[in-house]
């Protein structure tokens, strides 16, 4: 285990004991939101960092998962767990559809197509206000009746850790190798007999399913959802989080999500300026440290070992 891995593991352990050492509820709430973003940032990096497919639909997929989970509960009377699963399946299937439809597209063409899908979803949710309450927002029942912030915190921590572990398991399997091979040389990979079509579609589906899961949980935590959770602004935060943490690694991206959300709260006095500062940091990172803070640390620490 490298030094960086030890540090990150220690941070996770620290996160698990935080509620026991009397951290104020306000910060637990912030961390819970941070864990939601951790799931989004890491699932986004699963797609962008490993198979090299860009998507701007991650926030919209989280919203899709959230709305499906909430509406199956309200309209069909499903209990929380089945409706959460419905959200995951809906987001996963939508991702599979996008992935399959856009097989031919790369780079900016793919980016534009995913923006279009995301915006159509957001516009539909806003327009069908008889069902979704539109931009007034949809009231959501709590995940667990009468649960306090500590319970939610642990649920989100467990969800984020399990999600990232599942992603790592996927990436360390043969499938993960296929992903990276496709990223490096799609035609070459296909010529070696890898089913590029299948894995490219599946990578999209896996990434969006995790986003749908995060969105469903988030909806039942904040208990009010609006179409703005699907906006490009929100997508921008997810991108900045993944980039600052390091989008070439799902673990780094997840930490980027938590860290950025905590900093956003801690620097609240700066007002809107803090968002501008994060924009600058994201740009500088992309330009000079494309592997993010943790990717940069990793290479630094490696160099020291030698």
């Amino acid at each position: 285990m490298t030094l960086l891995q030890k540090i990150l593991l220690a941070l996770v352990v620290l996160a698990a004991v935080l509620p026991m050492v009397g951290v104020p509820q306000y910060w637990l709430y912030t961390l819970t939101i941070g864990l939601y973003y951790a799931m989004l940032a890491s699932s986004w990096s699963l797609l962008v960092g490993y198979i090299g497919r860009i998507s701007f639909a991650q926030a919209a997929m989280s919203g899709l998962g959230a709305y499906v989970a909430v509406l199956t509960g309200q309209l069909l009377g499903w209990p929380v767990v089945p409706s959460l699963i419905a959200g995951v399946v809906a987001a996963g299937l939508f991702g599979l559809m996008i992935g399959w439809l856009t097989l031919r597209l790369h780079g900016a063409y793919l980016g534009l197509t995913t923006i279009a899908f995301a915006e159509i979803l957001r516009i539909t949710v806003t327009a069908e206000h008889q069902v979704t309450q539109g931009s007034r927002g949809l009231q959501v029942r709590p995940l667990i009746e009468g649960a306090g912030p500590v319970t939610y915190y642990y649920i989100f921590l467990a969800a984020a850790v399990v999600s990232v572990l599942l992603m790592l398991a996927l990436l360390h399997s043969r499938i993960g190798l296929f992903f990276q091979a496709i990223r490096e040389d799609e035609d070459g990979t296909a010529s070696l007999g890898v089913n590029v079509t299948l894995w490219k579609s599946l990578a999209f589906a896996a990434s969006t399913a995790f986003a749908g899961f995060a969105g469903g949980l988030y909806a039942h935590f904040v208990q009010l959802i609006t179409p703005s959770m699907m906006s490009m602004q929100e997508m921008g935060y997810i991108l900045a989080m993944a980039v600052i943490g390091g989008f070439s690694n799902v673990v780094y991206a997840a930490f980027g999500g938590v860290i950025l959300q905590v900093l956003l709260e801690a620097l609240r006095e700066m007002g809107e300026w803090r968002l501008a500062v994060f924009g600058v940091i994201a740009i500088l990172m992309l330009r000079f440290a494309p592997n993010g803070i943790f990717g940069w640390l990793e290479t630094r620490l490696k160099r020291k070992d030698k």
């Binding site: 962008v48 780079g107 980016g111 968002l275 992309l286």
Partner: peptide
């Protein structure tokens, strides 16, 4: 490819929040 997309998207977020500030 990815750099160009992400850097201009990040620039958009920066300019938007700068104008907001």
């Amino acid at each position: 490819d990815e750099y160009a997309i992400m850097i201009t998207f990040a620039l958009a977020i920066l300019l938007l929040n700068l104008a907001n500030s």
